[in-house]
Amino acid sequence: MKRIALVLAALLIAAPTFAAPLKVVTTIQDLASLTKEVGGDRVDVSSIARGYQDPHFVEPKPSFLLLLRNADLLEVVGLELEIGWLPPLLDQSRNANIRPGTKGYLDVSHGVEILDRPTVVNRSMGDVHPLGNPHYWLDPANAVRIAIQIEQKLAELRPADAPYFAQRLNAFKIRINDANKRWMATMAPYRGAKVVTYHASWPNFVKHFGLDVVNYVEPKPGVPPSPSHTFELINLMKAQHVKAILMEPYFDAKTPQSIAERTGAKLVVLYPSVGGAKSGTDDYIQTVDTNIANLVKALQ
């Protein structure tokens, strides 16, 4: 009996503080995946948007209010990606700790490379994000920059676990660096290849992997394809021998499919987010793996 008591006492002293995991809510699954990489079992991460949904449009559900209500930390993509649906949810969640400007709010766009930042925005440009292109997480270098910001924020909120987060960040950096070498090697033969994308959502991705986007299926961001633009696009693609049209799974494939048929290009579905498909998109690195594999098939 005495011995059991002693063992118990020893356990209690030796055990680290059993703090409940930090509750983190992210707007998209990519941020959730990177948070898991850094936070391990010391965080409890949930994402609001699913990877197969267009993150510009998310249908609010009651559980989102509850998630936000109980969150210690909210991570957002920013650059107005979530402007259509997050503010009312955040208002109604009545959680003062995760409002913009507080410690529990992390906008990871502050520490990444942003492309397409317009110098002048006017309404004739289409659905342009005035702060720059929000699809920046598709560049693996930005994924590392996001992970660093997450690590700093987690360490700020849970100083006791800072060494644990730092060590996990390093492990992740090593893994994604190795993966990146593999990706770059696979993509090397296709450097400078001309492609068309449906929406202007891949600038960071194509910059990293050295592809050349000659035009978009949408005449302007957010505007459905029009006949004259489609006609011009077909001529352009034929003239420049474009081999692939990249699109997200949630856009309507009819127009890009018919363009592909008329130009001999291949239509490639790339997953813009972790969780974009039933398999092959379980975490960030695996999602890029899948995208690179699909892309290479089309460019060959």
């Binding site: 208002d91 109604q92 459905p224």
Partner: peptide, 24 residues
């Protein structure tokens, strides 16, 4: 009208589909 200059087609869409869950 939207096809001519639609900076915020998403805002306009938002306007037509108000959401009773997040009413203030």
């Amino acid at each position: 009208a939207m096809s001519k200059a639609p900076e915020g087609t998403e805002h306009l869409k938002d306007m037509l589909v108000g959401n009773i869950l997040t009413v203030s």
